[in-house]
Amino acid sequence: MTIDASFPTGPRAQVDRTARAKLLSGLNRSDRAFSLLTRAAAIFVLITLGAIFVALFLGSLLAFKTFGLGFFTTESWNPVTEKFGALAPIYGTIVTSAIAMLVAVPISIGIAIFLTELCPMPLRRPIGIAIELLAGIPSIIYGIWGLFFFAPALQQYVQPEVIAFFKPFPVLNQLFAGPPYGIGILTASLILAMMVLPFITAVCRDVFDTVPPVLKEAAYGLGWTTREVVKNVVIPYTRVGIIGGVMLGLGRALGETMAVTFVIGNAHRISASILAPGTTISATIANEFTEAVGDVYTSSLIALGLILFFITFIVLALARLMLMRIEKKAGA
């Protein structure tokens, strides 16, 4: 009978098996502890989200009981008579975010394409760092700059020319009508575009860098131009990441407060012109929460917060659904 040397026997073998068992037991305990810790972190996020929703819902019950569905369809906002409607802030939030994304998304994708495909190597890092520094500027700095420099420049040089240019066109003359205030929905939208641009650019640049070089080299080998490579290789390969970056910027635009408060004009009315002053949900809450007197007034402001919560949730849910459909289509 022969003894396999790979399975030692005797007292020393028993000690080795005991030490191995202790080591495996310790690893199992640490793995279970790590699993419980990460699960607790995920549950904590859900509990926090639920607590925010419950707090906003309970705080806004009085406003919904008082005004009913009229709270969503009424433009009037009068603290003196305690008549409140959320239509103007909802309109301002959606319009400013939409215009900001229309401006920021093409510019951000263009900058990311330039940095990854066209920019000389010595300039890529400095330009990338400069763009990322824009994301670190506090929003109140954007607001101050917008109020004292950007808005006066628009009022004096840009808005009069825009009003005169679109005046002969039937529909566009209403969209760009009115005196050049400087501050207003368009100004707030442009400030928002500047604020979300570095976030979208950073995400797009990172996902563009994940494209395998062999794909682009093969496309160039077929004689494609840079534009064709970007259109047919880079964009299709990274479309999921691009949409994720756009949704990140949109979430920032929907909830931005201080910069918008400085330059939007804070007028509770809906105007067909994007040059006119307006307001957003976050700007209304920031301006009036400390001055809210009375339960109905406070409850109405909390109801605005709940509406913004739902708008953000719906936007992110739709973005996630879009990403799932794109991934499913790509897999098929």
Rank of each mutant, 00 (worst) to 15 (best):
G92M: 00
P126D: 10
G255Q: 03
V203W: 06
V105M: 01
T187V: 13
A63H: 01
M121R: 14
I185S: 10
T284Y: 01
I302R: 13
V207K: 07
L56R: 15
L118A: 08
L46T: 03
T210C: 05
F34P: 04
P170L: 08
T73Y: 11
G245V: 12
S271P: 04
A42L: 11
A63G: 03
P122S: 12
L192D: 07
A135D: 04
S189A: 15
Q159V: 05
I285T: 01
L62R: 12
I94H: 10
I43G: 04
L192H: 00
P180M: 10
G146N: 05
I302Q: 12
I127P: 02
G85M: 00
E327F: 07
P180L: 11
I264Q: 01
Y220H: 12
Q155C: 06
P138Y: 07
F64M: 12
T73Q: 08
P179C: 06
M1R: 10
A98S: 14
H268G: 10
A21T: 12
L172A: 15
R32H: 13
G245R: 05
N287F: 07
A319H: 14
R325E: 03
R325Y: 07
I137V: 03
H268M: 08
K83P: 00
M101Y: 04
T238L: 13
R32D: 15
F84L: 06
K167G: 00
F71P: 04
P152A: 13
G249R: 04
M247L: 13
P8S: 14
L190T: 11
V234P: 04
M247Y: 01
L197T: 13
G26I: 03
I99A: 11
G182L: 00
P213N: 04
G241F: 06
L301F: 08
I107D: 03
G146S: 02
E228V: 04
S108G: 12
I314K: 06
G143E: 08
L27P: 09
V207Y: 05
E291G: 12
F53K: 07
K231Y: 09
M1K: 02
I131K: 03
K216A: 15
A303V: 02
R17I: 09
K22E: 08
S300Y: 02
L62F: 05
S300I: 02
I183E: 06
A86T: 08
A218R: 07
I243G: 02
T116G: 08
F57M: 15
R227G: 15
C204Y: 02
M1T: 02
M195S: 01
P168A: 11
A5F: 03
G110L: 09
T298F: 08
A253T: 14
T201E: 10
F67K: 15
Y142H: 06
G92F: 05
K167F: 09
R39S: 09
P126A: 13
V158Q: 08
M1D: 00
G184M: 10
I111Y: 06
A42C: 06
V105I: 11
A330W: 07
T226Y: 06
S30H: 15
Q14K: 12
I3T: 13
L175H: 04
L115W: 04
